[in-house]
Design a protein around this nucleic acid. Structure first.
Length: 891
RNA sequence: GGGCGUUUAGCUCAGCUGGUUUAGAGCAUCUGCCCUACAAGCAGAGGGUCCGCGGUUCGAAUCCGUGAACGCCCACCA
């Protein structure tokens, strides 16, 4: 065996072995199910560090569940990511010199599918390199047949229930992609902007003017009124008057509404119902008309302005909204219609996907009524039927649901599930879309032109709605549709795998996805979609910056796997990733992971290097080995219980750290040193087999975290077949949680302290480990001390009674001495002992302060008082021993 | 403007309902070791006014109040 672990070939070999033997595949059976559905990555995405974190955690949970004997099923898949993918396809087409607008819907979709088939699923291949144990036979896509059918069926069902409606609303419009977005897809950024104070001359008396403050002067073309608060003193004079929109010439009324905040700005608010949510609300209230001055790509459209005003504004036609802002301000300045311009900080909404400023736009869209869903989704989280880790996200969740707004689900995109709503061609030609009567819309699963709908043939020619559905409208069904639970409710799979066990995802999609899955789960299965939600943090670089392409601070995971091995990377990403905390990624963490692999590798190498002698003295005659085995059994049992507890709390990085310390400190550092045979001596069979059994248990504990190396070494143990058809650690089960012998654990902690005392003395005096020393002890000691500290033990019986120069130390209340006349430096030794003495005296003072406080003795619990008394007597004993040692040294 | 969270060693974090030998871990640092499992290692060491202030208590990193810094979420003040 090589002295270093080389992951490359080993990882490829075992992953193929797992695939060949279908070890990831699950079918319903009599075992308890354990299900995770993957948060589907974008079909055209590539693996980044966020995925590595997320998928590693899921794999750990799934593999641990398998070892617990559950029927674990991790369902993989990808998301069609409507807007993101459409953008990528458009970009690629552009590179080929093709504009989307030159293509028909069918032609465009052909390109999109080609792209999906070509690049789609790369990310799933990459997950295999990480060791992810997904059931690849179940790989799904949000736009495959089963998932699409579920989406359409749910749309129709909700429409029938009156929970989906069509309406002309002010929506968030992305001028880049030219589609509506949901509120959740808008990200607000703080910006330093300007506040423009514009003069609106009074029509009745043009020598006077009202001053209106606005951040968006380019929208004045759509101004319909100026609103004041009826209670505001300084604007009373404007009541009932009219003003002239500067630069435009439109005469508009002054209206009054308490919505306008007294004292803010000038108290005069320009009302532009087509381009502002609040203005729209005012427009509705006062039945004002709306003038939409923008084209869908947010350029000025002056064709909508009243003909008589056209000459005034024609020059702005076709201008970009931000160019127009500059132009109109300059023009108004020239006309002396700008009072002043101030700096102003406000928030501007940007499209999450295209990162361009959102334009509020009045348009005809489809919505889901959300109050009903909020009502069914809030209680299960608040009363912990569904448990969030960390729990703080319950607040976030509640806050959103208690202020729920209707969900805009239609998108003016082609890549996605097409809205199954149909319009009668003839009627549509008469009315247009906006005025098409709702009760004449046909919402159905099939095509009414070619098949029966609602049990009958639909006469006439039907035209389908042009829109596609929000991607999340398919994602929210994911845990159900993966098991075909929408189209075939109550089927064997949905009954078995649903509710799923754990969901692992980022808190950034708690509203987009988590909340909506809970809604859909209760609506369509009547049960929660998952029992636990583990929110991961954001992966940042070690300086705390978000990883991004532009910063170039995001390492390529495949490159990391190449350098550190998949197991090393898994450990690296997990080590400092408590649930919900951001993780500061650093290559050093992967390095630690790689080093750990090497450590385990070498433990194994050591054990395997021993010659087993059947004729050697048996374990019965070896007290030291028997003791070591008994101790490690206790230690292992303790850790197994601890790790199980940590898993139950989803404290995975702590569980891994526990295993790490168990291997490095307890097993390698102590146990193996205890039982290690002398140079070129064989080991007895009893000890050898006990050690192999321990190693086996250690591998099973570690396997969920580091699947590859544990599988490799587990085979090296040549374990018995255990009645399994396929030999794999994946088919093993964890050791049951046993009782812990705490007495022996305490005993060994003392032994370790004594050995450390000797080593410490050696280090201080530069005595090599090879040189055998004498350890004078007042009590009999376990012979393992002789072996591990390389000392000869002299027991003095009552008291230490040592004369001459020696190094002394105390463990508990017992004093030990190591004679070393040749090396001793009395002054240094005294200094050390005196420092210790001072520390002990300080400690005693603290204890005494408590014990001499009557109120403490009266009020504290008796066991606490007893403990303080023990501290006191122990400290006194140590002080006496130290004083004695100092006296001896001085004398 | 509301709400939530964080602040403990150089770094990343544990420390649950106050008392567990005057605060723990991993990493990093320093010192000494290539001793035939492992230098990707071993042995040892140093390192903290538990963010500040006030309070409750016999006793506070832990509970309460207050202030500060940082972070996140939500909100229609033009």
């Amino acid at each position: 065996m090589d002295s270093k672990y080389n992951p490359k070939d080993i990882e490829a070999h075992w992953y193929q072995y797992w695939l060949d033997n279908k070890l990831f595949h699950s079918e319903p059976d009599c075992r308890e199910p354990f299900t995770i559905v993957i948060p589907p990555p974008n079909v055209t995405g590539v693996l980044h560090m966020g995925h590595v974190l997320n998928e590693t955690i899921q794999d750990i949970l799934v593999r641990r569940a398998r070892l617990e004997g559950k029927n674990a099923c991790w369902v993989p898949g990808t998301d069609h990511a409507s807007i993101a993918t459409e953008a990528k396809v458009i970009k690629r087409l552009k590179e080929q010199g093709i504009n989307k607008s030159d293509l028909t819907r069918e032609q465009f979709l052909k390109h999109a599918w080609d792209w999906t088939d070509e690049h789609g699923g790369i990310i799933l291949k990459q997950l295999r390199k990480l060791g992810c144990s997904c059931d690849w036979d179940r790989t799904a896509f949000t736009m495959d047949e089963t998932r699409s059918k579920a989406v359409i069926k749910v749309f129709c069902d909700l429409y029938r229930k009156g929970l989906i409606y069509r309406g002309l609303r002010m929506v968030n419009w992305d001028p880049e992609r030219q589609t509506a977005l949901s509120d959740e897809e808008v990200i607000y950024h703080d910006e330093h902007n300007k506040f423009y104070y514009l003069r609106y001359r009074v029509a009745e008396d043009p020598t006077k003017y009202a001053v209106v403050a606005t951040t968006r002067p380019e929208t004045i073309f759509g101004d319909i009124a100026v609103c004041i608060n009826p209670k505001e003193e300084k604007n009373q004079w404007l009541k009932g008057k009219h003003v002239i929109v500067p630069g435009v010439g439109r005469v508009i009324p002054i209206i009054e509404d308490r919505y306008v905040e007294i004292g803010f700005g000038t108290g005069c608010l320009k009302v532009t119902p087509a381009h502002d949510v609040n203005d729209y609300m005012l427009g509705q209230k006062y039945k004002l008309k709306t003038i939409d001055i923008f084209t869908p790509d947010a350029h000025l459209n002056m064709d909508t302005i009243e003909p008589e005003l056209q000459p005034n504004v024609r020059k702005y036609h076709g201008m970009d909204r931000f160019d127009c802002r500059k132009a109109i301000v300059e023009d108004l300045k020239a006309l002396d219609l700008v009072e002043k311009i101030e700096d102003y900080d406000n928030k501007v909404g940007y499209s999450e996907r295209t990162n361009v400023p959102i334009e509020p736009r009045l348009s005809l869209q489809w919505f889901v009524k959300m109050q009903h869903f909020a009502d069914i989704a809030l209680p299960p989280v608040m009363n912990d039927d569904i448990v969030f880790y960390p729990a703080k996200y319950k607040n976030t969740y509640r806050n959103w649901l208690e202020n729920i707004k209707d969900w805009c689900i239609s998108r003016q995109l082609w890549w996605g599930h097409r809205i199954p709503a149909w319009y009668d061609a003839e009627l549509l030609a008469q009315t247009g879309l906006e005025n098409y009567p709702d009760d004449k819309i046909l919402v159905c699963e099939g095509d009414p032109n070619t098949q029966m709908v609602n049990g009958k043939c639909q006469n006439g020619k039907w035209i389908q709605d042009e829109g596609a559905l929000d991607t999340w409208f398919s994602s929210w069904l994911w845990p159900i549709s993966l098991f075909n639970g929408i189209d075939d409710p109550g089927n064997k799979e949905i009954n078995y795998y649903y509710p799923t066990s754990d969901l692992v995802t980022g808190p950034d999609i708690i509203f987009f996805w988590v909340a909506r899955m809970i809604m859909a789960g209760y609506e369509y299965v009547g049960k929660m979609p998952f029992k636990h939600v583990y929110f991961t943090g954001i992966v940042r670089d070690k300086l705390g910056r978000k990883m991004s392409k532009s910063l170039g601070n995001s390492p390529d995971p495949l490159d990391l796997i190449e350098r550190y091995g998949a197991d090393g990377v898994r450990m690296g990403i997990l080590l400092s990733a408590p649930a919900g905390n951001d993780i500061l990624y650093d290559d050093a963490l992967c390095e630690q992971g790689r080093n750990f692999c090497n450590k385990i590798w070498n433990c194994f190498r050591l054990i395997k290097s021993w010659e087993v002698a059947d004729n050697a003295p048996s374990l019965e005659e070896r007290a030291g080995e028997r003791f070591a085995i008994k101790w490690f059994e206790a230690k292992l049992a303790q850790s197994e219980a601890e790790i199980a507890d940590l898993f139950s709390k989803y404290r995975l990085s702590e569980a891994l750290m526990e295993i790490y310390k168990l291997y490095c400190d307890e097993f390698s550092g102590w146990y193996l040193e205890m039982i290690k045979p002398a140079y070129q001596q064989p080991i007895d069979r009893g000890t050898y087999e006990a050690t192999l059994a321990f190693f086996d248990r250690l591998l099973r504990l570690l396997h969920p975290f580091m699947p590859f190396i544990t599988e490799e070494l587990w085979h090296g143990l040549e374990p018995s077949k255990q009645g399994c058809a396929v030999r794999s650690i994946m088919n093993a089960t964890l050791a049951p949680i046993g009782n812990v012998d705490t007495a022996i654990l305490a005993e060994v902690e003392d032994l370790k302290a004594i050995i450390a005392g000797v080593r410490n003395a050696r280090a201080a005096k530069n005595i090599p480990p090879k040189e055998r020393l004498t350890l004078i002890s007042p009590v009999a000691l376990n012979p393992l001390v002789e072996k591990l500290a390389n000392v000869e033990i002299k027991v003095t019986g009552d008291g230490l009674q040592v004369t001459g120069n020696c190094s002394k130390f105390i463990v508990g209340t017992t004093e030990f001495a190591i004679p070393m006349d040749a090396f001793i430096n009395v002054e240094e030794e005294l200094k050390k002992l005196e420092a210790d003495l001072q520390h002990q005296q300080g400690f005693l003072r603290g204890v005494m302060a408590k014990l001499s406080n009557e109120r403490f003795v009266q009020n504290a619990k008796p066991e606490i008082v007893a403990l303080e008394q023990k501290k006191r007597s122990d400290a006194e004993a140590r002080i006496a021993a130290l004083e004695e040692a100092i006296r001896a040294l001085k004398g």
